[in-house]
């Protein structure tokens, strides 16, 4: 992992108001890999992701992306550097059509004539529903839209926060397959926060465990194949 990680986090602290959540995170995300971050509810996984994308200001520590310190940048500046964020809960723009949602994701490129065919190729349902208001889609469709919306901007790192939450298994499998496919073909780096063991095993090449605002363990691919070990780290 010594060889040039895409994202390096050192001593990162952040929280809400006076409440500290991240208590000094150290993490290196290798370029071109799918890295999972697991841990029980409330240990600070989403908080970590929000701090990386820039929705939460760090109180200490550093975040380096592609060799550049980004801890003081706004979220939109980080997005323009190639960070993509798919939030827990999806957060589609509810009163805009599917295609308008994609248009927002595309705007980062400033392409005058947007071409959504690649995204519609991955998620055919989005083409079918492209004129429909995003708020009226099912949970699984919204998740596909949230992922398509960030991919259309051509990020080099995608932060996926619990993409399987509340979604039917067939769509979870699709998402895992597409993530792996993108990673293999384009070298897209993915950070995956997940509770779903099957999804972690289907996607991740490497896995960190978080507890109480710290990274407490790293699981090797071999350990990932052992359901019991993974389950123990996810146990509530």
């Amino acid at each position: 992992m010594a060889e040039d990680p895409l994202l390096t986090i050192a001593g990162l602290r952040a929280g809400y108001g006076g409440k500290p959540v991240l208590q000094g995170i150290d993490l290196a995300i290798p370029r071109g890999e799918i890295t999972a971050v697991i841990g029980r509810n409330g240990v600070g996984k989403s908080t970590l992701i929000k701090a990386i994308i820039g929705l939460l200001p760090p109180s200490a520590g550093s975040i380096r992306f592609g060799g550049r310190e980004i801890g003081a940048l706004t979220a939109h500046a980080r997005a323009r550097l190639g960070l993509g964020y798919v939030p827990q809960g999806r957060d589609v723009f509810p009163r805009m059509s599917v295609e308008e949602n994609l248009k927002v994701g595309m705007s980062i490129r400033g392409a005058p004539n947007p071409d959504y065919d690649a995204i519609y190729g991955y998620f055919p349902i989005l083409r079918e529903r492209r004129r429909q208001a995003a708020g009226t889609l099912s949970g699984g469709q919204q998740q596909q839209l949230a992922i398509g919306r960030v991919l259309v901007g051509g990020p080099s790192l995608v932060l996926l926060d619990e993409p399987s939450e509340g979604i039917q298994p067939s769509i979870v499998q699709d998402i895992a397959r597409i993530g792996v496919d993108l990673n293999r073909r384009t070298g897209l780096t993915i950070v995956l926060v997940e509770q779903n063991i099957d999804m972690i095993r289907a996607m991740a090449q490497r896995c960190f465990v978080m507890d109480k605002g710290r990274v407490t363990a790293e699981l090797t691919p071999a350990m990932l194949d052992d359901r019991d070990i993974v389950r123990r780290h996810l146990a509530v």
């Binding site: 994308i53 820039g54 929705l55 706004t74 979220a75 939109h76 980080r78 997005a79 323009r80 964020y85 939030p87 957060d91 589609v92 723009f93 509810p94 009163r95 805009m96 308008e100 949602n101 248009k103 927002v104 994701g105 705007s107 980062i108 919306r149 960030v150 901007g153």
Partner: peptide, 18 residues
């Protein structure tokens, strides 16, 4: 489009580069 996105879910628009 970007203005409506910003009005509907500001933090999401921001993380998409707006």
């Amino acid at each position: 489009v970007l203005a409506r996105a910003t009005i509907q879910v500001p933090h999401m628009a921001e993380t998409l580069g707006v």
